[in-house]
Design a protein around this nucleic acid. Structure first.
Lengths: 228, 228
DNA sequence: CCGGGAACTCTTGTATACAAGAAAGGCCTT
DNA sequence: AAGGCCTTTCTTGTATACAAGAGTTCCCGG
């Protein structure tokens, strides 16, 4: 059973990632403590963890602010995410086992079902499982953690992408090719396809940025100075 | 001027990364507080940050233990590090500016000088700058941070590698090819070369593991913190 | 002689008290 | 009236006090 400070960390992360706090908003410890019905101590511990994860910036003696990424940084994150997923695909192509194959195909079929229904939100969920299946087939716990962390931070922006551009049919078609490459043990091809697949969302990102005032004006979100 | 808890975070990170605490050793808050001449509060906040960074594991109500990676995980980390550096190379090949080129060549020349002197430790230092120059040329602040974080954690193992296998001449030769590929804007080639370059250290890692009893048997929690 | 359980101890988790720096606002000077 | 300095207040950072769960030990029963 997680301690209070861990629950708070998750709750705060959720709120920050979902943009409940605007870019650069000050996170007052007392206010948060009141809001969550606890003392400042667990709040501080949660903020420390989030600071290490890059979700908040802590300026000594001057409080914590939500480190909402600006457009530039978001692009960089998408770019890295694409490469990391590609890496996972390369690993998966080399190392998949029959069990991994079953998982992958099951996830792929689930995507097909949701795609045919045309439900973007449902597809998004199955899409996540599909990508997780690829990562799992890579058999690298460390890579899995890195993926999960990055994915959590990009989650709201990704979901937005799928919905606004109605990418679902194209996304599913790309999945088809990715599965084929992985099962054929063609790591390079799988990596290339995955890179493009994930990056498409970032490529069109410039359009999205223009439509999101909160992002366009996010000049105050600065690089995290956390050494971690 | 960093706060106490930030200094403590760095100090503890340093000690953990350098293996002052053996694998799985319990980090007693009171003891650490005594040792650093402070109260438990900043210690706890430092541990929280390190937990988010993956350097310690916090088990609820049961204290924190040093999360020293075992051989398997270390391999995974090397593997991911290799891919990430490769990614940086691909970016660099696409985006380098004349200033980046100067930096890269300067770092490369410094490596040459140290390699000719045959000083492995000095070479190791310049080698780090060389790789940092590549990452910088990729012009992605996010990637830069990811690299820095991973590199810090692998640092002690990497240095060990260069010294024990006398890889310096080979390493420098590989640098030569990498520089050429980047300056020729050949991202794929740069990535391929970098992946191999970094991974060599991991490939031979099995040998190293066998020679380090503290790693080979790291599954059990031992109190001998006098290691290395 | 060994296993189970209850009391005890020790550590962690949380709240509160206190110290010290930062922001804000008023007052005095020019 | 404007600008700078001082004071005041508010927030963060650290220490300590307290609560509660986990581990340990020791006794008792089988």
């Amino acid at each position: 059973m997680a301690q209070r400070s861990q629950e708070l960390r998750d709750a705060l992360e959720e709120e920050i990632v979902n943009g409940v706090f605007g870019a650069g908003v000050r996170l007052d410890e007392q206010e948060l403590a009141r809001r969550y019905g606890t003392s400042r101590t667990p709040i501080r511990e949660a903020l420390m963890q989030l600071s290490a994860a890059g979700l908040v910036e802590i300026r000594p003696r001057r409080g914590a602010i939500a480190a909402v990424p600006d457009a530039q940084r978001l692009m960089e994150m998408f770019e890295v995410a694409a490469e990391i997923e590609a890496m996972a695909g390369r690993f998966a192509a080399r190392r998949w086992t029959p069990a991994d194959k079953d998982q992958l195909l099951a996830a792929h079929d689930a995507c097909r079902a949701r795609a045919n229904e045309g439900d973007a939100d449902a597809y998004y969920y199955e899409n996540e499982l599909f990508h997780e299946a690829i990562v799992a087939a890579g058999h690298s716990g460390f890579l899995q953690e890195q993926c999960a962390q990055l994915r959590r931070r990009l989650k709201p922006y990704r979901r937005l992408q799928l919905r606004t551009h109605n990418r679902v049919p194209a996304s599913f078609a790309e999945h088809e090719a990715i599965v084929a490459a992985i099962l054929a043990h063609d790591g390079e091809e799988a990596a290339r396809l995955l890179r493009r697949h994930v990056l498409v969302q970032g490529d069109r990102f410039a359009d999205l940025v223009a439509s999101l005032p909160q992002l366009a004006g996010a000049a105050s979100a600065r690089k995290t100075s956390s050494g971690l």
